[in-house]
């Protein structure tokens, strides 16, 4: 570690979030990017607080999203109401373990990893933990990338809802958890988006 990283901010440079133009830091707080006319901040304002708020919201909604049924399948008069977990178990029971695994990863594992990962990163920034900065950065990148895949469940339900419409014979209805789960996914995505990853290493090496 002979070459200590020196951040741009420390050298009084700002970076435009939109066009990535490097600008010298002005005396004024607010700088406008001459190229794309975006307001350029040193760091996203209130990034940490906003991320926390969104993340906590997603945690709160995650509970009813998993407890309540996500959809009702009406097959020839037999109503079957499933939560996410019961749906996965059902899939596994009827011999579709690979699909169950995919759904499990997409619907349970990924959101959970995402939420806890984000929470970890936020905590690290909050309490100025110095270790594993690189790992956290990689984790953040992964969270941001993988976030959209949690929408798999929602995609499946919305496709089923549209296709399976045979009145009395077979039909699919969404239940409140679908909306809640959707909210969780969106909230975590926003939380990751509002978090300024540069904060991860801002306070190290001091």
């Amino acid at each position: 570690m002979g070459n200590k990283p020196v951040s741009a901010l420390r050298q009084a440079y700002l970076c435009c979030r939109v066009c990535h133009k490097t600008l010298p830091q002005n005396a004024q707080e607010v700088v406008q990017c001459p190229r794309c006319h975006t307001q350029v901040y040193a760091r996203i304002p209130h990034s940490l607080a906003q991320s926390w708020a969104l993340l906590i919201s997603s945690f709160i909604l995650y509970i009813p999203a998993n407890v309540l049924p996500i959809m009702t399948l009406n097959k020839a008069g037999v109503m079957r109401t499933d939560t996410i977990i019961s749906g996965i178990i059902n899939l596994a029971n009827i011999g579709m373990q690979p699909i169950a695994l995919i759904v499990f990863i997409a619907s349970i594992l990924v959101p959970l990893l995402k939420m806890f990962g984000l929470a970890l990163i936020l905590l690290a920034v909050q309490f100025n933990w110095q270790r594993n900065v690189c790992l956290r950065t990689k984790m953040y990148r992964m969270i941001e990338y993988v976030g959209r895949w949690s929408m798999l469940d929602i995609f499946v339900i919305s496709i089923l809802l549209g296709i399976v419409k045979f009145d009395k014979v077979a039909s699919v209805d969404i239940e409140p958890a679908a909306l809640l789960f959707e909210s969780v996914v969106l909230l975590t995505m926003f939380a990751a988006l509002r978090f300024d990853s540069r904060l991860i290493w801002d306070d190290i090496n001091e």
């Binding site: 707080e29 209130h46 708020a53 709160i60 309540l68 909230l187």
Partner: peptide, 28 residues
């Protein structure tokens, strides 16, 4: 010097989530 508000408006969001989640749970 820019005075930051004591609490950001974003913190209404968890509150709202809690309300919605609670109400839906209660309904079910």
């Amino acid at each position: 010097v820019i005075r930051k508000p004591w609490l950001s408006g974003i913190w209404l969001l968890p509150l709202l989530s809690a309300l919605i989640g609670g109400w839906v749970l209660y309904q079910s």
